[in-house]
Design a binder for these strands. Sequence first.
DNA 1: CGAGTGATTGACTTAGATCAATGACCGTGG
DNA 2: CCACGGTCATTGATCTAAGTCAATCACTCG
Lengths: 197, 197
Amino acid sequence: MSQQDWLPPAVRASGVERRLKAGQALFRMGQSPVGLYELVSGSVRLVRVDSSGREAVLFTAGAGDTIAEASLFSSSYHCDAIATTNSVVRLYSKPAIIAAFERDPKASQAFMAVLARRIMNLRTRLEQRNIHSARDRVRHFLTVNAGADGRTVVLPGTVKDLAADLGLSHEALYRTLSEMAAEGEIERLKGRIRLTS
Amino acid sequence: MSQQDWLPPAVRASGVERRLKAGQALFRMGQSPVGLYELVSGSVRLVRVDSSGREAVLFTAGAGDTIAEASLFSSSYHCDAIATTNSVVRLYSKPAIIAAFERDPKASQAFMAVLARRIMNLRTRLEQRNIHSARDRVRHFLTVNAGADGRTVVLPGTVKDLAADLGLSHEALYRTLSEMAAEGEIERLKGRIRLTS
DNA sequence: CGAGTGATTGACTTAGATCAATGACCGTGG
DNA sequence: CCACGGTCATTGATCTAAGTCAATCACTCG
């Protein structure tokens, strides 16, 4: 997820850093895109707020992720980007990137691959949201996000954040995790969860 | 959604047609991608089946849509593609497309735009799935998919299909539509729904 | 004209949302 | 250094809306 080595050095050099405090918006829905952001450190959420005031978390970017790739081809942002922790982003201007694509087919293809990966991610998320049972949804999350050992999942933020990511109320998630831990299905560690299968 | 005029004529000419009966699979999860499909007529669903046997509809392609763009950059399909009606698809081989990208930056960019649009679509779907109330979910669907007049939505298939698309049981959807019609919020026509706002 | 499927409605169950309360933890400022 | 405000973590009680099971009628396709 974090390979954006596809950026040609020339473009990479042109990046401009910007610092965000927790809770601060990187951009808001409707604004017109200035370029491509890369998250250097921290974490940023893409969020859409529906009519009833409910927040839908579309994506949670971690260090190394790019943000708003799709907006390169759109005339306005279609969601809000909010830093959940103090963060640093790097901005690459739209013209610089487009020019690089004109010049270097490899860069284009690498970027396509990034977009493709994002699509697959979104589909996985969509699949997850189709799971009604809270427990099964958590199981799905754990198996999809298990680390190298296939057993340990590092929680990127708070459990509450995770709940929003999973589309569950935080109470439901706490309960589910407790139950799973009580039944020995998982083990809860500091900032991590381990499947004990 | 249906502009795939981005395909260079040379590639376009190399397309091979294939005919599918309703219910037939175009490809299955795990198989290795042969190229890019364009749906000429009919409709095809991208579906993933989770552990509990539940089906998640990831995307419903209509005439003109491309299928499995993301798989161009992947070594295997990550979902099933099933025709819901008799359909005709056209296959463009992977090497031909990649070659076109090498040659023609415009084609690359057009394809990126297609991917970007798909990403935005998926995000909208994700937003929709975050809406818990069946009625609000239907409202969201109607406003997002309203035609040129902003009031009429053409139903691509059966209501039951729509239910699967929306992630609702068909009973719940029937009921919700009835209620909305009874309260005068919508008007149900043959294969269409009109908002009466 | 029958089989199969879609459309529709009823009755019941249940799991998750919601409201609520409490303890733990963290950083901050006096 | 410690008290305090804020947020996270956790658990209880209740409610409700969507899922599920079930039955019926309407259509369409051979």
